[in-house]
């Protein structure tokens, strides 16, 4: 069913004129071995999903449904048990400069300044850029996320929203094709979160990046996604893929006032509700 939905759903999104697959997950099954209990836990089962260039795909599902595992598999820090993930036609064997990630807890190095944190990907991976090009990029992205003036600050001196801006700049600085985001705004207060969502929409519209974004918030999913992938609880399977055909930039159009917005929200909530209840009860 999931596969059929993927194929039948028209590929929406303002900037995906020619549908060109960037991420292809084929029958992906991933799990972990729990050493203490001598058991194998299947986190994700038979995930088949194609993400096209420039598309913004949001994954929603209850805690523990394997969303993070999926995104880690795309990033290349988790290896699948079965099936494959391909990025730009190449099977993923490890992390690469074509992918970058934004983390829920920011994951900024506390001993590095804002500038040095943003520069870190360059130190870890040689992209063949000159020192000038790297400096130029660091400052361009510092400016994009509105952090000029805070170059020399340390993360502990910043608010949550500012820390995540650093996280976003660090992810964008290598200009990856794919931006992976693991609940990036979950720990940020509601007002700042809304501002950050609209800015993220602005950034990726500018950079034309492909985004895979995890969230627990249905509103966030509908506001940001071109498609919303609903994942079921343990083992995570695709329950339904919901296309979101709302005009962009959504924060300017005030799409929340549109009747379609309410319908989509309602529809996704009905899909997620049972799963969330199950997760809240702690599984079967």
């Amino acid at each position: 069913m999931a596969l059929a939905k993927t194929l039948s759903a028209a590929e929406p999104g303002a900037h995906s004129a020619a549908a060109q697959p960037v991420i292809v997950a084929n029958n992906l099954t991933i799990g972990y071995s729990l050493h203490r209990e001598r058991k194998l836990l299947t986190a994700l089962k038979n995930i088949t999903l194609t993400v096209n260039k420039g598309e913004f795909v949001v994954l929603v599902g209850p805690s523990g449904c394997g969303k993070t595992t999926f995104i880690n598999a795309i990033a290349g820090i988790v290896q699948p048990w079965e099936g494959t993930v391909e990025v730009n036609g190449q099977p993923v064997t490890g992390p690469g400069p074509d992918r970058a990630m934004v983390f829920q807890d920011y994951a900024l190095m506390p001993w590095r300044t804002v500038e040095s944190n943003i520069r870190m990907p360059f130190e870890l991976k040689n992209l063949g850029l000159s020192k000038q090009e790297m400096d130029e990029r660091v400052h361009r992205y510092l400016k994009l996320v509105d952090l000029n003036g805070f170059e020399k600050s340390f993360p502990y001196e910043l608010s949550g929203g500012m820390k995540q801006r650093v996280g976003i700049a660090r992810a964008l600085v290598t200009e990856p094709d794919i931006l992976l985001a693991d609940e990036p705004f979950a720990a940020i207060d509601a007002m700042t979160r809304e501002a950050m969502q609209s800015e993220l929409e602005r950034f990726v519209t500018q950079t034309r990046q492909t985004v895979v974004f995890i969230t627990h918030s249905i509103d966030e999913a509908v506001m940001l996604g071109d498609r919303v992938v609903v994942i079921s609880y343990r083992p995570g399977q695709i329950k339904e893929i919901v296309p979101v055909n709302l005009p962009r930039p959504r924060f300017d159009y005030d799409v929340k006032a549109l009747p379609e917005y309410g319908e989509l929200r309602e529809h996704i909530w009905r899909l997620v509700k049972d799963e969330a209840l199950q997760a809240a009860r702690g599984g079967k």
Binding site: P95, F103, D105, A107, M109, K125, R170
Partner: peptide, 29 residues
């Protein structure tokens, strides 16, 4: 050493030696 710092460094391309030098050691200092 915080797991999220390690996975961040890995995502951005850190090898084993980089992980020690740029994450584990400063964290442990």
């Amino acid at each position: 050493t915080e797991k999220s710092l390690l996975s961040a460094a890995r995502v951005f391309g850190a090898g084993k030696w980089d992980l020690y030098r740029k994450v584990v050691f400063p964290y442990t200092l």
